[in-house]
């Protein structure tokens, strides 16, 4: 109940602040370019696959932008005090904020359904709905991981810019380490790196393969960072 109250406030705030709208605009702009230049190509089979397989990169600047203020801003302005003295557990505060930002992410993806509709309308034969549904699922999952990392960074600092850069840097390192880094990794490390790869899992989804192990991977990564956020916030009380 209190979790949903916090989630609702967070979601509403993102829509009342310029940062939310700018993040939506940025994402739709990037997705629009991909759609216009890589998907809407005459003579090519109708599929949104390029959009989904590149989305791990498209969301890279967007997710930190919507998650950076979650806790940082409360720490900076002092609103964390009335919030953490209300009868809500620290876990409830963090979970509420997380659900709020994930809700925002879902709403942000809605306008991209226009791409699907346009492709459906224009192409013959019609695109296969399976890979499209799987692709959207992968977008939500990867967004959940990114925003969970952003939430954690936001618990670590009262400075939004720092939270943004920290998240961006962290995700960039993970993405690069598991793509380019893979080739340079020693043979014994390669299976581990491959296991951690977000990109390769996104490719699978884009092909239309929904593998439970991938879903478990994304959800547990997200859960890990949410738990880290709770611990970080709790530890602030004891400092």
């Amino acid at each position: 109940m209190a979790v949903l109250t916090i989630a609702r406030r967070e979601l509403a705030s993102l829509f009342r602040l310029p940062v939310g709208w700018i993040a939506v605009a940025l994402y739709l702009f990037l997705a629009g370019i991909v759609f216009a230049y890589l998907i809407l190509v005459p003579g090519q089979p109708a599929s949104l696959r390029p959009l989904f397989s590149i989305s791990a990169w498209l969301l890279l600047p967007v997710a930190p932008a919507i998650s950076m203020r979650l806790v940082s801003e409360e720490l900076r302005s002092g609103t964390i005090e009335p919030l953490m003295t209300a009868p809500v557990s620290d876990g409830g505060v963090v979970l509420g904020k997380y659900l709020g930002v994930v809700g925002f992410l879902l709403i942000m993806l809605v306008p991209t359904l226009a791409h699907t509709a346009a492709l459906w309308w224009l192409s013959d034969p019609r695109p296969d709905p399976g890979p499209i549904a799987a692709g959207y699922l992968s977008l939500v999952l990867v967004g959940m991981v990114y925003t969970a990392v952003g939430l954690w960074m936001s618990c670590l600092t009262a400075n939004q810019t720092l939270a943004f850069l920290g998240t961006l840097f962290f995700l960039l390192v993970v993405l690069l380490a598991t793509t380019i880094g893979f080739e340079y990794a020693p043979a014994w490390l390669q299976p581990v790196v491959a296991e951690l790869s977000i990109q390769s899992r996104m490719q699978e989804f884009a092909k239309g393969v929904i593998d439970t192990s991938h879903i478990v991977y994304f959800l547990s990564a997200a859960a890990l960072f949410v738990v880290l956020s709770v611990l970080t916030l709790e530890s602030r009380r004891w400092r």
């Binding site: 109250t5 406030r9 005090e81 209300a86």
Partner: peptide
């Protein structure tokens, strides 16, 4: 400390739900 983007009415209603 308050959320600048909210209105007094919406803030109080948020607090009422929290409590």
């Amino acid at each position: 400390p308050l959320y600048p983007e909210m209105t007094p009415a919406s803030y109080l209603s948020f607090r009422a739900r929290l409590y």
